[in-house]
Write a protein that binds this DNA or RNA. Structure first.
Lengths: 236, 236
DNA sequence: CTGCCCGAACTGTGATCACACATCACTAGC
DNA sequence: GCTAGTGATGTGTGATCACAGTTCGGGCAG
């Protein structure tokens, strides 16, 4: 029957639950640094803000708590975790190890299309950073795009999920600062590190790619730590 | 006041929500392989089995879904994911990379107490495996204890959480088989690999520790893949 | 003016109900 | 006899209500 052909062209109707939408919305807030460490979150208030009942919010929040991106205090208050210097350092070291691993694999296995995507992401980040007035919020998103363009080429889906979760935990600490002071993009090392990553991926140099990504993470973490905004922080 | 001293000795009352308890119960079922890939899970039935309402179960299940330990089919049915050969291989490779990393760090940083704990875990696993009639369920638990005794010595809390999540995803596939055929413990390579891990940690040989853990994971994954129980599986 | 205390408002947790949808057995129609 | 439609049953999802606990501010006593 000809109708079969017409039906085959129909796009699948996407079935998203409100919980997923709420999870995405809160994730975005956390990853972009619009929720700062220590900020409290009320189920009812966020439910009202998103125009839904508390149920979808509960599920979204409980997932984020499981990810470590949010925490429930013994008082049962939900808030963005405040990392002390030691926890932040451990998180940064974990990221350096795992994201370095992923970048190394990406350098070895990437194909032409993936390389092109990484190159585009690097260019976009550079264009914004070198602009007369860099956009902090945009820089956060473009930085994320650049990193995940690399990790997408590593060929391991579980690895990408793990890294996404790590970013959820580190996002509030890292990006709050970047949003507030986008000018450090121009003097910071991110630009140079990204160029190193791109070059290593181009030449299939796994060791260099891992070192460049680890260096990028290390520099950013060092900057945050030296600024001393964390509880119990001491420089280096 | 002397009552202050007496009060200080009181252990903290643990405030566990029903959701957490349910999560632990389901995690245990998954990690030990008592829930097999493809098994369906009904919220109402499990709620009745645990003697609670569906609410705590919903939160527990949604967390496990977020971890990838469960999945909701487009039909909205909750079930244990059925990994095809490619997915299983990617998961195994990710585990080899990350758990190898953790083992390497553990070998470098372990202190005497951690070494002793690892040694005890290795002995316990060996004792059960070399018994006339090895206990499959016990072997699963002891194998887990051995691995996590090593990872606990790596000094990075986020790394341990990541590995725990990976085990949740791989558990049903790996341990279902081991529970059914515990006799392969006697001929399998797990015993030898564990001894290699212990030796490497004793001598602080990071490279050897990483290789031994990766080898252990590789051998188990290879065995599962060669057995061909996975969709789209071909040997090696 | 300062300290304590009590109560109102809010928090997350859990139970219960309502709803749209999927599945499957069964039956009426070809 | 076989297919398509129909109903009952069970599913996850979402809303609403009830409750114990916390927090915070206003008012009373010192």
């Amino acid at each position: 029957m000809s109708s079969q052909l017409a039906l085959a062209d129909l796009p699948q109707i996407e079935r998203r639950t409100l919980s997923e939408t709420a999870y995405d919305a809160l994730s975005d807030l956390l990853a972009s640094g619009r929720l700062a460490p220590g900020d409290r979150l009320s189920l009812r208030q966020t439910a009202a803000a998103l125009g839904v009942s508390v149920m979808p919010i509960r599920e979204a929040v409980s997932r984020l708590v499981a990810d470590g991106a949010l925490e429930v205090a013994p008082n049962r208050a939900v808030r963005v975790p405040i990392l002390d210097a030691g926890e932040f350092r451990a998180l940064a070291e974990t990221r350096m190890a795992i994201e370095g691993l992923a970048a190394g694999r990406a350098a070895e296995r990437r194909d032409a299309a993936e390389l092109a995507a990484i190159r585009r992401a690097e260019e976009a980040f550079r264009a914004n950073a070198q602009a007369p007035a860099p956009d902090g919020a945009k820089a956060v998103a473009l930085n994320r795009d650049m990193h995940f363009a690399v990790y997408a080429a590593c060929g391991l889906a579980p690895m990408r999920e793990i890294i996404a979760r790590l970013w959820l935990k580190a996002g509030p600490v890292l990006n709050l600062d970047l949003r507030a002071h986008p000018e450090r993009l121009q003097h910071g090392s991110a630009l140079r590190r990204h160029a190193e990553v791109l070059r290593a991926v181009e030449t299939r140099d796994a060791t260099a790619a891992a070192a460049a990504v680890a260096g990028d993470i290390h520099d950013a973490a060092d900057f945050i730590l030296s600024r001393g905004g964390l509880r119990g922080a001491e420089s280096s």
